[in-house]
Design a protein around this nucleic acid. Structure first.
Lengths: 111, 111
DNA sequence: AAGATATATTATCATTTGATAATATAATGG
DNA sequence: CCATTATATTATCAAATGATAATATATCTT
C-alpha cells in the first residue's frame, strides 16, 4: 500500500491551517472575485484594521496572497491558484448553490 | 456581487480546522483506502495511543469519522464523503503524482 | 475469575493562536 | 511642510490547542 510521505502531510496541513481561520477564509472567498484593497476587505469582512492587517501579512508570508501598492492603498490578490482551488472545493461542499455565481469569467481572468 | 454567508464561512472554517492538524490529516489520508482499527492507525501514523485516541474522538464528534467495534478492536472510517473529497483536492495540490494510486476502486467501494 | 490486550478518558502543563490597543510608517492634499 | 488617510507593526494578554502521563473500561483468553 502507498503511504503518504510525512513531509507532504506536513505541508498540506500547514496550508490547510493557513486558510482554516474564519477571517482568513473570508478574505480568500472575497478575493476569488479579484483583487481588493485593505479598506474594501475591512468593509467586506467586518474585521478591525489591525486584526485584518495581521492576517493579511500572515497569508502573504505563506505565499497565499500577494499585494501591490497603488497610491495610498494596498491591493491584495490570491497569489497561489492552488488555494483558490481549495476554496472552490470547499464551496462545493459548504455552499454548492453559490459556486456558479462567485466564479465569473472576469474574476477568473483578473485573478 | 455575491457575498458569502457568514454562517457558511464559519462552518467551512470549522471543517477545515478539523482536518488541518497533521495527525488528523494523516489519519484521513490513510482512511481514504478504507477503514482501519486503532492499532493499525497507531502503526501507520506513529502517534501515541492516547494522543491518537483523542484526535479520533474529536473527528468522530465532528462527524468526520465513525467507528464500529469488532471484538476487541475499534474500526474507524470516513463518515462524511465531503471530507474525503477535500482530502483528495488537497492531494491533487500537494502530491498529484500519488492520487491515482491511493484511490483504488476497492478503496472507493469499501469507503 | 484473573490476567492480558485494545481503546478511551481525564488531568495537567506548555505552546500557539488570536484579539485589542497603541504606535509607526508612508502617501496624499492643501 | 503639515494634516489626513491608509496600512503595517508591536506589545500585551486571554483563550484554545495539543502532548504526555496516568487511569479507566471493555473484551478476550485461559
Amino acid at each position: 500500500m502507498q503511504s503518504i510521505p510525512k513531509e507532504k502531510i506536513s505541508m498540506a496541513s500547514e496550508g490547510l491551517r493557513a486558510i482554516s481561520h474564519e477571517l482568513r477564509l473570508s478574505v480568500l472567498c472575497h478575493l476569488l472575485n479579484g483583487s481588493m484593497c485593505v479598506a474594501e476587505l475591512i468593509e467586506a469582512t467586518g474585521a478591525s484594521q489591525s486584526n485584518l492587517s495581521q492576517h493579511l501579512a500572515k497569508m502573504r508570508l505563506m505565499g497565499i496572497l500577494n499585494n501591490e501598492k497603488r497610491g495610498q492603498q494596498v491591493y491584495y490578490r490570491i497569489a497561489n491558484p492552488a488555494f483558490a482551488e481549495l476554496v472552490e472545493a470547499l464551496q462545493k461542499i459548504y455552499c454548492p448553490e453559490m459556486c456558479n455565481f462567485v466564479l465569473t469569467e472576469d474574476a477568473l481572468e483578473e485573478r
